[in-house]
């Protein structure tokens, strides 16, 4: 229960799906996320990813087991406000979480509700907008922005709470490839420069190749865990129906053709450098 981490201990979450039916969304999960990490979370629809995300900031409580955020139990409802300050959430569709008609007002919503003084609110907005590259659009109306820009507003609003952890539940699924690339780069920067812990949920393996750690959920259980390279090269990863990024597939096919290519290559950049060094 060290401070500076998220801990899930033997967490089970069941949903009632009828009078006598229960669906087990998470099944006895134990997991630690350390501050400063960039964690990718992947899994099929219905594998429990969103349930896991919602458990971490206390939106839902486990049926059994405990969730601790910096040592605070999420079941302790008196501390829920503090937990929400530590854990920022960004959902799939930014339209569902943007509340104000002006970008900077939306970003101000959190700190204002924390009771911050005007100076501090302004300072936090300036920082959050600058960190997400939305500074120029601060006076715009969110509904006139593109999907990618709106998603960044949602992230800025979460950042203005100065969270230790940022949890993003499939934030890229509504974005075009350009917007997606931008968003991932932005998250990497927030993680590296400001030390914000990022947990990124996605169906797209390309989104999570840069993660420090990749967790694969399957039917409510942790199915695989390791560095992206370890996960992508696991036989079990394939057999569960997942596909690694194109470059990993390419390397694996070329190895089958007899080329002794470094198995550790998972990005385009690495492959280019590898071939140019030969």
């Amino acid at each position: 229960m060290a401070a500076g981490s998220i801990e899930l201990i033997n967490v089970t979450k069941e949903y009632a799906t009828g009078r006598s039916h229960k669906k087990c969304a998470l099944d006895n999960i134990t997991l630690t996320i350390n501050q400063g990490e960039f964690v990718g979370l992947v899994g099929m629809n219905g594998s429990g990813k969103s349930t896991l995300a919602r458990l971490i900031n206390g939106l839902i409580l486990p049926t059994a087991g405990k969730v601790f955020v910096n040592g605070i139990d999420t079941a302790d409802r008196k501390s829920i406000i503090e937990i929400r300050r530590h854990v920022g959430m960004v959902f799939q569709n930014p339209d569902n979480q943007i509340v104000s008609p002006i970008v900077e007002e939306d970003v101000a919503f959190g700190p204002e509700n924390l009771g911050c003084y005007a100076d501090e609110v302004k300072e936090r907005i300036d920082w959050a907008l600058q960190a997400t590259g939305m500074d120029e659009l601060r006076h715009h109306a969110p509904y006139l922005l593109s999907g990618g820009q709106k998603q960044k507003v949602a992230i800025a609003a979460a950042l203005s709470m100065r969270p230790d952890y940022l949890i993003l539940d499939e934030p890229t699924s509504m974005l075009d490839p350009g917007g997606k690339y931008d968003l991932i780069e932005n998250l990497k920067m927030l993680n590296e420069k400001y030390g914000i812990t990022v947990m990124l949920i996605s169906h797209h393996m390309e989104d999570v190749v840069h993660a420090d750690r990749l967790i694969v959920l399957d039917q409510g259980q942790i199915y695989l865990e390791g560095t992206p390279r370890e996960v992508f090269s696991s036989e079990n990863f394939f057999s569960a129906g997942f596909k690694p990024p194109g470059i990993v597939q390419l390397v694996s096919n070329l190895r089958k053709r007899g080329h002794m290519i470094d198995e550790n290559i998972i990005t385009v950049q690495q492959m280019v450098e590898y071939i140019c060094r030969l």
């Binding site: 490839p177 350009g178 997606k180 990024p245 385009v268 280019v272 071939i275 140019c276």
Partner: peptide, 21 residues
């Protein structure tokens, strides 16, 4: 074009061509 990004295997081919391969 904005919003258009090649699949990664094509990015690789183009990057290699750019490096004179």
């Amino acid at each position: 074009l904005p919003g258009i990004i090649m699949p990664d295997y094509l990015q690789l081919i183009h990057a290699l061509a750019g490096r004179g391969k």
